[in-house]
Design a protein around this nucleic acid. Structure first.
Lengths: 128, 128
DNA sequence: TTAACTGTTACGCAGCGTAAAAGTGA
DNA sequence: TTCACTTTTACGCTGCGTAACAGTTA
């Protein structure tokens, strides 16, 4: 499978796929012509990458923690539908991530409250 | 007031102050030696910039919408403690921002839920 | 030949951190 | 002189978008 087809089948841009490769999240073979050649498993791999990026993990974190082949337990691929245990080394990491996420939520909720207030203020003024 | 003092008094880095100037959010005078010279009002101006950045506005949005001197109404400086009406032109903008923020919150809440589940799974496995 | 795909290289964005090389002021 | 402060210039980071220029393939 060439890069274009993988892009179509995952909905991820060609640019992103090359970027993931640069970050070593994907390691396609190369044909005689130099074209990247992906095997079908790359599809779920890409979906997993997207999923973890959506969780707020950076590419290097995905590489270090999630792909962690050295831990030798099947955490990857993961599309969010199957939940499985995290290896002990990752527990602290996920706890930190959780704290980060909750801090971000708190910050955004403050912003939301403030903007709502201003919009309300504006409505009052407009109706007077 | 030189840039270093403004940095100390606002808690904002010198680099950030220069960046705000590059983005035209600050326009200090220049001394004979070429040093930037800020008047005291710059302090609250910087605080306001930080506040709006915290709301998720970009520097250009802050310049366009918040500083909007062309609207000729006192929206700046604003530190979040004083609520005042938004001019009509800005209402749509803030509504969009609000929608953005709520989408981000929803996304982060999904991430939070997922991570919590995985941590829970791990606890179960560990206790079995 | 042409059109569609692929390759590499590289600049742009946002909000800075950080370092380099050089002038200024007490 | 030295030390702290200032200046400008510029590269790095993150996850790509978007060319540009060139080879490949149907």
């Amino acid at each position: 499978m060439n890069i274009g087809e993988l892009a179509r089948r995952t909905g991820v841009s060609v640019r992103s796929l090359r970027y993931y490769e640069e970050k070593q999240l994907l390691t396609p073979q190369r044909g005689e012509n130099g074209y990247r050649s992906y095997d079908p498993s790359a599809i779920e791999r890409v979906r997993a990458i997207q999923f973890y990026l959506g969780l707020g993990l950076s590419t290097s974190e995905i590489l270090d923690v999630v792909l962690c082949s050295e831990h030798d337990h099947e955490t990857f691929p993961c599309d969010g539908t199957t939940n499985q245990a995290i290896c002990p080394e990752e527990v602290g990491f996920y706890q930190d991530k959780l704290a980060e996420i909750e801090a971000q939520i708190a910050s955004l909720e403050k912003a939301r409250t403030y903007i709502k207030q201003r919009l309300d203020q504006t409505r009052k003024v407009a109706s007077v």
